[in-house]
Write a protein that binds this DNA or RNA. Structure first.
Length: 486
RNA sequence: CGGGAUGUAGCUCAGCUUGGUAGAGCGCGUCGUUUGGGACGACGAAGUCGCAGGUUCAAGUCCUGUCAUCCCGACCA
C-alpha cells in the first residue's frame, strides 16, 4: 500500500480489546446512552439509552402480563423499623442503604430508608391484602428506581441509583412458589437469549451468593469479553421467611392459618451493560435488532441539489414506517462518512444507503452493522420493491448472527476442568466460566475466592459420574460455574 | 472504604519543574465550495483553570482542605 499512516477507523473510542473498561465507558458516553450526573455515582439515562431500556421494558412486561402478573407501584421510602423486621435481609443490605433523616426542616423521629429493594414494603401490604387462600396467588411487578450505596460505580453495571423491575408474588404452597421462581428465571433466560442476544447460564446460587433472606436464589449469568461473569437477572424463593417477618398469613381451605410462600425476581438496566459489552466492537455499539431503538437508518447520498435522491429516500422512509419498522431518515447536511460513523457508534443494525447510482438501478444498498467492512454479505443491493419485505428478514439474520457469535464465545471460554491446580490457575487468569464438580461447601468456596477472587456464579445438579470436588477433594454434590465477576 | 492517578473550552490534552495578561487539535456557529467512508477555505463564538481557603505585589502554576472521576483491592444488582 503506502507509508501513509492509516487513518484511525474510529476517532472517539479506543479499541475494545485494548482496554475493555475504557472502551465500555467511552461507548456509553459517545453513543449518548448516558451522561455522568452531578451526583456521585449516578448517571443520566439519555433518550437513546432510555429507548433501549424501553425495549427491554416492553418485552419483559409483555412476558410478565402473559404469565398473569400485574404492575403496581409501592413507595420509595421505607421506615427503619419496618426494614429491620427480617434479620438476614436487613443485615445483608445494611451497608448499602441510604437514609433520609430530615424532612420538612426537622429531624425525623424515625429515619426512612430509600428502597434498596421492596420486599419489606410489599410484604407489609400483602399482609393486609391476603386473608384467605382465595386471595392467592398475588402476582405483582413494579418498574422502579432503586438506591444502593455502592463504593465503586460504572454506567449500567453499578450505579447508586438504578432502574429495574422487581416482581413479588405470594403463594399458598411452597411448590407453587418454586414453580413461579423457575418460570421467571426462564423468562429472563429466554429474554436474554432471544432479545438481548446474550447467552447465559441459568442455575442456583450458592448459599454465600444467595439473596439476603431467601431460601433459594437462581440467576442467569453472562460472560463478558474480559472473561468476567455478569449476573443479569435473579429469581428468589423466599420461603416463609418474609411471610413470618411481615405476617403474611391466610386461612386455608381446611380452616387452619398458614404463612404464605413468597418470591421475588428482578432484572435491572445492568442487562443493557451486558449486551453493550458482549456485542460492541471497535466502531462502537452493535445492537441486536430487537433491542435497537432504531432498526434501520436511511442515509441519502446527495450530490449537488439531489432532490430526486432525497425524494426517493423519503418514499422509502414512508414505506418502511407504514410497515411498522423503527426507522430514521438522516437528511442532515453532513457528508455521508460522518453519518455512517455516527450511526455505527450508536449500533443501528442496518444502514440503508440511497444515492444516484442506487436510484438509477432502482435499488437500496443495505449495510449490516454486525459484519466487518468488506466482509461477505456486509453490503448488498435490494430492489425498491423488495426493501420493506427484506428488512425483517435481514434483521432476523443479524439477531441470530449476534447470538451465535456470543454463544460461540461463551462456549469457547467455558472450560470443564477436573484438575485442581489447573482450575485455580484458570480462576486467577480470569479465563472465563470454569465448570467443575463441586462439593457445595462454604469453606471451599471461600478458599477459592481468597486465593483467586473467583466465586461461584451458579450451580446445577451433577450429571452423574462425578465423585469428588475439583477444588477440594470432598465428595461432589453439584456442578458449578466459577468465574471472577462484575 | 484502603492504595495509586487525574481534574485547564463540548472532547483529547499542552502550560505547572522555575508564579507575571488562557493555549492547541478536534468539535461548535456563519458563508461558500462540497457530499458513494469521518472534506476544504474564510471568518467567528466558546474556559470564574473542579471547589474553598492560604502564601504572595501577583496563583492555572506553590501550600492546606474538600469534591468528583479513573485504575487496583475489599464489598455488592
Amino acid at each position: 500500500m503506502s507509508d501513509v499512516p492509516a487513518t484511525p477507523l474510529v476517532k472517539e473510542i479506543p479499541p475494545k480489546a485494548a482496554d475493555l473498561s475504557e472502551w465500555y465507558q467511552a461507548v456509553c458516553y459517545k453513543a449518548e446512552l448516558v451522561s455522568l450526573a452531578p451526583v456521585r455515582g449516578c448517571v443520566v439515562l439519555r433518550p437513546y439509552g432510555f429507548a433501549m431500556w424501553e425495549r427491554l421494558q416492553s418485552a419483559l412486561d409483555a412476558r410478565f402480563k402473559e404469565t398473569g402478573h400485574e404492575n403496581a407501584y409501592f413507595p420509595l421510602l421505607i421506615p427503619k423499623t419496618l426494614l429491620a423486621r427480617e434479620e438476614q435481609h436487613v443485615a445483608g443490605f445494611a451497608p448499602e442503604v441510604a437514609w433520609v433523616t430530615q424532612g420538612g426542616g426537622e429531624t425525623l423521629t424515625e429515619p426512612l430508608a430509600i428502597r434498596p429493594t421492596s420486599e419489606v414494603v410489599i410484604g407489609t401490604m400483602y399482609a393486609q391484602w391476603i386473608q384467605s387462600y382465595r386471595d392467592l396467588p398475588v402476582l405483582i411487578n413494579q418498574w422502579v428506581n432503586i438506591v444502593r450505596w455502592e463504593k465503586r460505580t460504572r454506567p449500567f453495571l453499578r450505579t447508586l441509583e438504578f432502574l429495574w423491575q422487581e416482581g413479588h408474588t405470594a403463594h399458598a404452597t411452597e411448590d407453587e412458589a418454586a414453580r413461579e421462581v423457575q418460570q421467571m428465571l426462564d423468562i429472563y433466560r429466554e429474554f436474554s437469549e432471544t432479545y438481548a442476544a446474550v447467552p447465559v447460564y441459568a442455575g442456583e446460587k450458592s448459599a454465600a451468593e444467595r439473596f439476603a433472606g431467601a431460601t433459594h436464589t437462581y440467576s442467569i449469568e453472562a460472560l463478558m469479553p474480559d472473561g468476567r461473569a455478569l449476573q443479569a437477572g435473579t429469581s428468589h424463593e423466599l420461603g416463609q421467611n418474609f411471610a413470618k417477618a411481615y405476617d403474611i398469613t391466610f386461612a386455608t381451605e381446611d380452616q387452619s392459618v398458614e404463612h404464605a410462600w413468597t418470591t421475588s425476581w428482578g432484572m435491572s438496566w445492568r442487562m443493557l451493560g451486558a449486551l453493550i459489552m458482549v456485542h460492541g466492537d471497535d466502531r462502537g455499539l452493535v445492537l441486536p435488532p430487537k433491542m435497537a431503538p432504531l432498526e434501520a437508518v436511511i442515509v441519502p447520498i446527495v450530490r449537488g441539489e439531489g432532490d430526486d435522491v432525497l425524494a426517493a429516500a423519503r418514499r422509502v422512509y414512508d414505506t418502511l414506517r407504514a410497515a411498522g419498522l423503527r426507522v430514521k431518515l438522516d437528511d442532515r447536511n453532513l457528508r455521508p462518512g460522518n453519518k455512517f460513523a455516527d450511526w455505527e457508534m450508536r449500533g443501528v443494525p442496518l444502514r440503508l444507503e440511497l444515492g444516484a447510482k442506487d436510484l438509477a438501478a432502482e435499488v437500496v444498498t443495505f449495510v449490516r452493522r454486525d459484519k466487518e467492512k468488506g466482509a461477505d454479505g456486509a453490503k448488498f443491493a435490494v430492489p425498491f420493491a423488495d426493501v420493506a419485505s427484506r428488512i425483517p428478514h435481514t434483521l432476523s439474520e443479524i439477531q441470530s448472527a449476534l447470538f451465535a457469535k456470543a454463544r460461540a464465545f461463551l462456549h469457547e471460554r467455558t472450560s470443564r476442568v477436573e484438575d485442581r491446580s489447573e482450575f485455580m490457575r484458570l480462576c486467577s487468569e480470569r479465563a472465563g466460566m470454569l465448570d467443575i464438580a463441586w462439593c457445595g461447601l462454604a469453606a471451599c468456596e471461600a478458599a477459592i475466592k481468597a486465593q483467586t477472587s473467583a466465586t461461584t456464579r451458579n450451580t446445577r445438579p451433577l450429571e452423574g459420574g462425578e465423585t469428588v470436588c475439583t477444588a477440594c477433594g470432598e465428595p461432589a454434590r453439584l456442578r458449578a460455574y466459577f468465574a471472577q465477576s462484575y
